[in-house]
Simulated scan of single mutants.
Amino acid sequence: MIITDTHTHLYSEAFEQDQKEMMQRALDAGVERFFIPAIDSTYTQAMLDLESNYPKNVFLMMGLHPTHVKESFKEELAQVEEWLTKRKFYAVGEIGIDLYWDKTFLKQQQEAFVYQIRLAKKHQLPIVIHCRDAFDEIFAVLEKEKDDDLFGIFHCFTGTLEQAHKALSYNMKLGIGGVVTFKNGKIDQFLDQIDLRHIVLETDSPYLAPAPHRGKRNESAYITRVLEKLSTIYNIPKEDIAEITTKNSKEIFGI
């Protein structure tokens, strides 16, 4: 059984003391593929180091996270663009709009989102979308940018059934993680109405740990909790969930 974690920040400072042990726990749990989203240029070397240590398991994205879109965002975007010309990445991400923490840079977030979508199209790569308190704003951008070259993952999907269908209409798959195990997560109430071919698994480590680890540091090994929950929701063996969602990830990332 091969499990794919399509979104995990394994280079995070949260793992500085035990990264090797944390990775081994995930590998022992059957997680063989880790897709690593970018945040900003200050993390690039840590991402490259992680890939160097686990070249058969770790696959990097490149992008500027919306909460890191600040006054210098154009300089950051220039670095994203440069990196995409220098070596192989498997997605442009994570990108999008976040209005939970701060609305100050909404205009800049929108500009950065559009710019990176177009970079992804240029390089024939998927996008990985971060959306927090911003479904309307995200959908407005996707509506303008939709075409045959637009595809990717709606990371950490926490919306309604209607919003799920709208996301799928833009050729996105839904990234499902720890939230599906929360008592108040709500997505577990309708997820069985979404065909599994539209679903990929993720942890967003070190954030959003699934129950019973909620509130603690998340890690990729805990994706098995997400797998178990989906097995219950869809009423099929977890091995089948792992196989289908890994297949879906291969369609998106091309590997």
Rank of each mutant, 00 (worst) to 15 (best):
72 S>H: 06
76 E>C: 00
38 A>T: 01
58 V>I: 12
36 I>A: 14
57 N>M: 09
90 Y>I: 08
58 V>C: 08
112 A>R: 10
60 L>Y: 13
65 H>M: 06
111 E>D: 08
120 A>D: 13
71 E>Y: 07
90 Y>R: 09
58 V>T: 08
40 D>L: 00
97 I>C: 07
69 V>M: 12
45 Q>D: 15
65 H>Q: 06
87 R>C: 04
45 Q>H: 14
35 F>C: 11
50 L>A: 10
64 L>G: 07
85 T>I: 04
117 I>D: 11
110 Q>L: 14
70 K>D: 11
40 D>K: 00
60 L>V: 10
108 Q>M: 08
68 H>W: 03
112 A>H: 05
54 Y>E: 10
43 Y>D: 02
46 A>D: 11
63 G>S: 07
48 L>V: 01
43 Y>I: 00
73 F>V: 02
57 N>V: 05
88 K>G: 03
65 H>G: 09
72 S>Y: 03
60 L>K: 11
44 T>V: 02
99 L>A: 00
38 A>F: 02
108 Q>R: 12
53 N>L: 08
78 A>L: 01
61 M>G: 04
41 S>Y: 03
119 L>C: 13
78 A>S: 05
44 T>F: 12
118 R>M: 15
100 Y>G: 01
95 I>V: 02
66 P>R: 09
78 A>C: 00
36 I>P: 14
38 A>S: 15
72 S>V: 00
105 F>C: 01
